[in-house]
Amino acid sequence: MNAGADRGFRLGVGVATFAALAAFWAAGSAQQWLPAIYFPPPGEVWTAFVQVLVQGYADGRLHQHFLHSCLLVLYGFVAAIAVGVPLGMLMGASRRAEALFNPAFLLVRPIPPLAWIPLAIVWLGLGDGAKVLVIWFAAFVPSVINSYAGVRSIEPHLVEAARSLGIPRAMFWREVLLPGALPLVFTGLRLSLQACWTTLVAGELIGAITGLGHLLYQAGLDLNPAMIVVGMAAVAVAGALTTALLTLVESRSMPWRAR
């Protein structure tokens, strides 16, 4: 199949879908078979959007919320992969390290990021530290798992060959393990990033001043569904943007992978 044509087709259908949905929403609200208290009409959402963009809502304007959230996600994400990727690769490369670290990891892994909130507050207070901790937990797990799997997915004969050539350890990591594991490591990073964004809302339940999670929380408290929709859309856009950024980094760091 022609890739260009396929992309065009997908784009067309995608745009048509959104258009149809918007039309359905507008018609439903106008005709009132979508009750306004359950589904805010487009007009209200637009008003809410303008309100938060121009006057501000929940103690900040949209770009302030947006930037602050991006910053939090960045901190949490970088801190998580800085620990998670090396740990996962180490566990993948050395069975000794795996045996040593895996039990503690297995204990911590299934605990939901939300469940760390009470402890995050008493340990780190109400500042950004506590929020970053909660986000960190969310992003840490996928980065470890996929880095581990990345190393394990390297063809054994490659490793054998490198070993038999007797190359130094550092070179072995740099030339064999890292490039071999990279595709799956990036899969992990992608999942980590998504986890960061979905956890952000929870993190900002810890009394934030600005941030998209705070915006959503305040809109929830005000029973303002139109503003909730604006907040959700903003989170989705921020998530998509940062993912696009990550994809860019990915294609730069793996030039040998034809796309």
């Binding site: 507050i121 008493v122 340990w123 207070g125 339940l205 810890i206 009394g207 934030a208 001043i209 929380y217």
Partner: peptide, 20 residues
């Protein structure tokens, strides 16, 4: 003042740990 909104349980945690 700076007002931070959160649930009652979170407030209790924050105050009892001297974080607020």
């Amino acid at each position: 003042v700076t007002i931070k909104s959160m649930g009652q349980a979170e407030i209790i945690s924050a105050m009892s740990s001297n974080n607020a």
